[in-house]
Design a protein around this nucleic acid. Structure first.
Lengths: 296, 296
DNA sequence: GCTATAAATGCTCAATGTGAGCATATGTGG
DNA sequence: CCACATATGCTCACATTGAGCATTTATAGC
């Protein structure tokens, strides 16, 4: 899964008229899997891939043909690139990832799709459970995962949301054909488990931008603070508080001014910034804290 | 890599006299890789595995025999279990993971090993770099990763620390035979890349306990707060502030009293607690925060 | 019973971080 | 000169976190 941001929209490279993620067999070259994969992707897209990480390895029974003796091993990756470059070899196109997960975008709609359509459907599914315990468990999962009943919305739960919809038979990929057939929930399906992989990548990326400066892999060399904010908003699907966003940037020392200004947007010109690459060396970007003590 | 905690020590299941992690080819059974792996491990150890997650998939060129046309795919997992159970089939033993990474344990020594031996060695290696830029970069990495020069110690960087020692030729596994041969740094080596996998698992687990209640997978059914704290201290290799540790537990609503007391340790008897399993349903345990806004 | 020892518990405080909002400044296009 | 669209500065209440002081309640040994 290769991601980029353009026009404030997070995008993903797709093939097969948007129904598949790019994939291919790995060559038996000399180098590591990661580096040959990088070369492969860069040939396809004409653009360097700044950041790459493994998502997950599936090694389940052969899913394509009837052969049950072999396992097919699929190793999925998440890659970030700076621009939505053109593909050379086949018809690859960049699509907004909200085309596949419209409910993940809370920037404008504020979750009307979720409250009006998705949650009611899921509640119906929850009621269908045979015993009370399962009903309660489903109801709770719906609340937690879709931010209902007092629970806060959590952008990083995109995979859990997709899985819940899948279990409830509300996406066309699910074998259980239920109400989905009649009036499917908005959001285009993909072939095989590709939409699931996409949901995994979205979750991973949304989690990652909080503690690692990977957002800059998606930005042009120089950018304004608003552009940066809108990129983050695009990825997380939520609007951010502008002043606080800037304050946290200042504190972290991640960026520096270029000295130039941009006046492309019409309003007051904004200063241009660039990412301080050195910061990656200066700091160890990792998680949160435990209640430490110097001594006991 | 299968981890457990006993006697306040985090332990890992090893075979081959402590020189290897348990591994094996995956069967071509009917079920998913994860579930057949779980069964396999449970047969080996006689204990249920509470939690399992994928660590990393290596698909590099065949590393064992001279065959260059095939890739060997190794999928490493991290599993957590409650007790150090006996193995049935072969001589598997539980060893403290600090046997392999003594520098990761700051509970008593307070890092003397690092400051007296490891950092000086690494500084020597840094000076050997051919150009100034590489020298500076190495010096910075040492500081950041081992918490020198004003940088705080970060327990989650165990993999980076091992990799740095590897690059510097200070571990026997490294092909570059340098000063390591003469007087190796404390810490037992393992075969192949098993110590690297172990370092990955340590890092992952140390990161995970901060935002997911996985610690309870390693605890007995009921426990005192001190036992819990010492388990966390064991994993993270650092001492914690007792009152604050308890305060954060109270806030999070993770545990509940059993009503019983334990008086095994000699001091004032402690209340026994158990993990509130329900909490996993009630909450979505994920990372930290972005500066959100209701509206712009 | 008295005392040393080992923990468990209760509480306070300063420093920092976070969410929200008010007010003002500085450009462009018409 | 005005409407607009942003950029920027600043404040404030509240929550979180790191640290430390003071008590309380048990066991073990004399």
């Amino acid at each position: 899964m290769l991601a980029a941001v353009s026009d404030d929209e997070p995008r993903v490279l797709t093939i097969n008229d948007g129904r598949s993620l790019p994939s291919g067999p790995f060559g038996s070259g000399d180098r590591s899997l990661q580096s040959s994969l990088r070369t492969w992707v860069e040939r396809q897209t004409n653009h360097p891939v700044g950041y790459m990480e493994q998502l997950y390895t599936f090694a389940d029974r052969d899913r394509t043909d009837g052969n049950t003796d072999r396992r097919i091993i699929s190793i999925s990756y998440l890659g970030l690139t700076r621009e939505a470059g053109a593909s050379r070899r086949y018809a690859a196109t960049w699509r907004s990832w909200y085309r596949y997960f419209p409910w993940e975008d809370l920037r404008q709609s504020d979750g009307k799709l979720i409250e009006k359509l998705i949650v009611p459907r899921l509640r119906g599914w929850a009621r269908q459970a045979v015993d009370k315990a399962t009903q309660a468990e489903r109801a709770q999962r719906i609340d937690v995962v879709f931010g209902q009943g007092g629970h806060p919305w959590n952008a990083e739960l995109s995979l859990q949301r997709y899985e819940l919809l899948y279990e409830a038979g509300q996406v066309p990929e699910a074998l259980t054909k239920s109400a989905a057939e009649a009036t499917p929930i908005p959001g285009e399906p993909m072939l095989h488990d590709h939409r699931r992989i996409l949901a995994t990548g979205v979750a991973r990326l949304r989690a990652k931008i909080k503690y690692r400066p990977v957002i800059f892999e998606l930005m042009p060399e120089t950018f304004t603070l608003l552009q940066l904010q809108q990129a983050v908003e695009g990825l997380s699907g939520q609007l951010l508080h502008k002043q606080n966003f800037r304050r946290s940037l200042e504190q972290q020392d991640l960026i520096e001014e270029t000295g130039e200004m941009s006046s492309e947007t019409g309003g007051r010109p904004a200063r241009l910034f660039r990412f301080r690459k050195q910061i990656v060396l200066e700091r160890a970007f990792t998680g949160t804290k435990l209640p430490l003590a110097r001594t006991r």
